[in-house]
Design a protein around this nucleic acid. Sequence first.
DNA 1: AAAGCGGGGAA
DNA 2: TTCCCAGCTTT
Length: 348
Amino acid sequence: MSDNVPRTIAAPLLKWYDAHARDLPWRARPGANAPDPYRVWLSEVMLQQTQVASVIPYFEKFTARWPSFEALAAAEDAELMAAWAGLGYYARARNLLACARAVAARGSLPETEAELLGLPGIGGYTAAAIAAIAFGQRAVVVDANVERVVTRLFAVTAPLPGARPRIRTLTDSITPDARAGDFAQAMMDLGSTLCTARAPRCLACPLREQCDGFATGAPEMFPVKAAKPAKPQRYGTMFWIERAGRVLLVRRPAKGLLGGMCALPTGPWADSPPGLADAPISAEWRMLDEQVRHGFTHFNLDVALAAATIPEHTDAPQGEWWPIAEIESAGLPTLFAKAARTFGRMHA
DNA sequence: AAAGCGGGGAA
DNA sequence: TTCCCAGCTTT
């Protein structure tokens, strides 16, 4: 089938969606009114580079605690960062708060893609998704699911990310004027449940007859992606400083890796194990046998663990002394939560 | 245009 | 292990 011929994709896809849509907490219930723009916005930000199953418990927690833009705008930075801990990409949490405050100040969430794009944390995908899903506008919504579905439908052999403009044009060509929001969500549900990355279930797919990728006999070959460079290995040391049953926590700089998050003290990451070179205080350090290994998007990290107990009333670096028994509730990102559990076993 | 930025689930 | 995911911001 030629790429130049518009296909009837939307009608069979929407019919499938009406029967098989996933029941997700930010979607309007069948027969209900339009979805709440606050919930659509919050879910879309949480879903950036994050799978649905990971988002749901955070979405439930956030909407229970902050049910509106106004409520979220009144939150403290530190409590929001702690509530986001574990979800990753922490710049999203900082932008979420800035966006909530901007929306509360102007009265409501804008309804056009162009205005939405001007808000913190809202880029091309999220602006289109909100405009379509929350406000019923026709918008071309392209996420990783849509990229996969479209490159299969049209057997796009050009590799990502270079093929993005072509994919956007193809998506535009199949996006309907009516129910654009449902269409976008239907594409995502299809990509998530049938047109999956590794083993697509083409026999259950409502678009099988129109799919060039299925016709090739190897739809799982799409999308083609450019080769990725190997991740570098980096090293660091984390410092557990105990004083009178409490441990020293610091807040990381607002920008950069894990920016704005509560953390154990560390030195900078290095190309070889730095040992105690960056220790925040002079003390009798004990090195733990166990290390913590953590994978980031762009490098792998091995962290050595150093522990010291200092007498009460001893001077120490700036930070917060957190009760060791309650360390689980400190709102540490996963790297530091893993380390804290390891230090905890040292105690036992 | 390219780089920086987390974490968890699936295969 | 590796791959992947409802991307955005900064340089």
